[in-house]
């Protein structure tokens, strides 16, 4: 039986101006899977996430990205989102004057429109928001506050997962959602993510720490270094990295050409 992978990245090259940051990345993610991406600072993890989400600052100079068999490289960020791509930002943006509730409402209604669904009635919407806020243990007051404005680091990260819960993406890319979280918040966020997992969706978690992977257990772990995936393995690879650091991988990998 052959199934189309949810996400297929083939030999992806991307960069900024003359500088190549991603130097040939290939990755296959099937529905139902969790992939962890690890790697030293500056290796290109956020760049990869941003390129997937369609950030226009980066030029893709080679390779392909397809979602459920559909080429998404030419799509705008909003179309990718509507097709089911969701990136939880490493640094969520503060947007004064826009309440969290209204923002999420607008996003959800856009998605529904794209899927040919009627807009949710206000009461149903409110009930849905309440339910999903509970999932990440966010207080109601955040709904009326300006989006991310004055939120603590941890509150911003929870808000990202709350949005993920509202939008129910096929592919969620979590860029260091664990950084800045205290131990309780880490568990809450991870449990929230786990509750959203299904056989039809997939999660890519970018992290520096094994501890998140104790909660969100990956099927595959990849090490990104210098714009390439230099090693892939099962969840035990994360333990090995935690123990030994990255040097042993760097030493075994081809140096920059």
């Amino acid at each position: 039986m052959t199934t189309t992978p949810l996400l297929q990245i083939t030999d992806l090259h991307a960069g900024i101006e003359d500088r190549e940051i991603l130097k040939g990345i290939s990755l296959t993610v099937n529905a139902g899977e969790v992939h962890a991406i690890m790697g030293p600072n500056g290796s290109g993890k956020s760049t990869m996430a941003s390129v997937l989400a369609g950030r226009e600052d980066y030029q893709v100079t080679g390779g392909t990205i397809s979602l459920n068999g559909k080429d998404i490289l030419e799509m705008s960020p909003e179309d990718r989102a509507r097709e089911g791509v969701f990136m939880a930002f490493q640094y969520p943006v503060e947007i004064p004057g826009v309440s969290t509730a209204n923002f999420v409402k607008t996003a959800v209604q856009e998605m529904r429109k794209h899927r040919g669904l009627p807009p949710l009635e206000p009461a149903a919407f409110l009930a849905l928001m309440r339910e999903k806020m509970k999932l990440v243990e966010m207080e109601q007051q955040f709904l009326s506050r300006s989006l991310n404005e004055g939120f603590s680091g941890g509150e911003k990260k929870r808000n990202e997962i709350f949005q993920m819960a509202m939008l129910e993406p096929a592919l969620a890319i979590l860029d260091e959602t664990d950084s800045g979280l205290d131990i309780d918040a880490l568990r809450i966020v991870a449990e929230g993510v786990n509750a959203l997992r299904s056989k039809d969706n997939a999660v890519v978690v970018i992290t520096h720490y094994q501890r998140l992977l104790n909660y969100i257990v990956p099927d595959f772990v990849h090490v990104l270094w210098n714009g390439r995936i230099v090693r892939s393995g099962g969840k035990e690879l994360a333990y090995e990295l935690e123990e030994k650091g990255y040097d042993w991988i760097k030493n075994e990998s081809p140096a920059e050409v």
Binding site: F86, P96, A107
Partner: peptide, 26 residues
């Protein structure tokens, strides 16, 4: 900020409009 809104499925022009309005509405 525009990219953040787009990444949640809100079209670019609409994102611009919403942010512009929000700027004034403050």
């Amino acid at each position: 900020a525009i990219f953040y809104l787009q990444s949640r499925g809100i079209g670019k022009d609409e994102a611009r409009g919403l942010l512009t309005y929000a700027f004034a509405a403050e």
